[in-house]
Design a protein around this nucleic acid. Structure first.
Lengths: 213, 213
DNA sequence: GATCAACCTGACCATATGGTCAGGATAAGA
DNA sequence: TCTTATCCTGACCATATGGTCAGGTTGATC
């Protein structure tokens, strides 16, 4: 809450406003879905007049597209931990931690992504077919290498990846259900640690990951 | 495609039309979300005039509510296999099979459920707080019993359930992504078997399930 | 300090959509 | 056969929403 930090510069204004709009849009799209979201609501949440949104983003779709692209970017970044790791214990462990952290810190983004995919990816299908396919091939290769090196059981890498995505993103996408089942309270720090621990324990043991070292 | 099976009886008409509408609604809500779905589209898909929908379901909400309630019902049914089982291998194995089958046969229902929960369960929050809480408590008790009896490792039952839901429902909710990563093709029978097998293998081994008997 | 490009916005418009209704058709029952 | 309750629907309405625009403000540039 900077009290009155007027961004004087024209460039700052643009950067600042785009950021406000994108943050508000992510939340609204996550809570209402694309169809349920209204430009008016996003504008209100961003503290700007609706016409101003249309100055920066000509259409609702263009705004939505930018939101989804940003999320996709974060999504891919989360796996930098993956490659350098000597084995599944370190690599997958760190990946699970990273994705759980995203679920905790950016649940809205995860929901928008889930919603986009559930609705057959109307705006990022091309990314799925190119970037995501390549990314997935790369990680599967890493898993196969670990298998060949005897560092884990011969689990189908594809389904292993799906399990990782599913289990970690579940804590964001179904966060409301989890919260309800937690007596209406958000998970505490301790409970988040327990969640991470459970996921890592089951999966790493489940694939027969042998500590390298 | 029954060619001209005119259901004469008034009761049959009602049953038949409600069924048509609910099936169409489930698909449309799944593909477009609540906000994106239109009564006109549901009507077209059901092959009825829009005004006729409003004869059976006064409002869009009431129609949506019925759809979600039906799904919730199926969701709970899937776990009948759970209780009678002598141990985790049979119980969880059968549960995973059942939920994977739902993901395969009724992906639309799964998506509607996911969407409802993601949007903070505006219409079935009361069910979450009552029925789902009770259901969950019951299954957690079963898992704890298995742990006490030394039939599996002491995994937090709560997070185990979340993993089961997440991994199985992922194949419905993110089916489009999975299909894209499968070269644009839906999973074949063989691939579905592989998916089930992978999930069961990793989870059952991951929790240290010991075959009872 | 004058000019210009970028930024801003209240008022407005066209359209889509949920919902209504009057009046007609049809099966059930007496 | 007559009456009634249920079913059906084209036409219509009120409202919400995405998007436009003319005219104004403000920082940048020389």
């Amino acid at each position: 809450m900077t009290p009155s930090a007027r961004p004087s510069s024209k460039k700052d204004i643009r950067r600042e406003n785009e950021k406000l709009i994108l943050e508000a849009a992510e939340k609204v799209f996550a809570e209402a879905g694309f169809g349920g979201a209204t430009m008016q609501l996003i504008a209100d949440m961003a503290g700007l007049p609706k016409a101003n949104l249309h100055y920066y983003f000509p259409t609702k779709e263009s705004l939505y597209r930018r939101v989804v692209q940003n999320i996709f970017h974060d999504w891919l970044m989360a796996a930098d931990v993956f490659d350098a790791a000597p084995g599944p214990v370190e690599g997958l462990g760190a990946y699970i931690d990273a994705k759980m952290e995203i679920s905790r810190r950016h649940p809205a983004g995860s929901k928008v992504w889930a919603s986009e995919v559930m609705h057959r990816a109307p705006v990022i299908q091309d990314y799925l077919e190119t970037t995501l396919v390549e990314w997935t091939e790369g990680r599967m290769a890493v898993v196969r290498r670990w298998i060949d090196e005897g560092k884990m059981d011969p689990i189908d890498p594809r389904h292993l990846l799906y399990m990782l995505w599913a289990t970690t993103q579940h804590y964001a996408d179904f966060g409301h259900q989890i919260e309800t089942l937690n007596g209406g309270q958000p998970l505490s720090d301790t409970q988040w640690e327990a969640a991470k621990h459970s996921v890592k324990t089951v999966i790493l043991k489940g694939i027969g990951a042998r500590p390298s070292g």
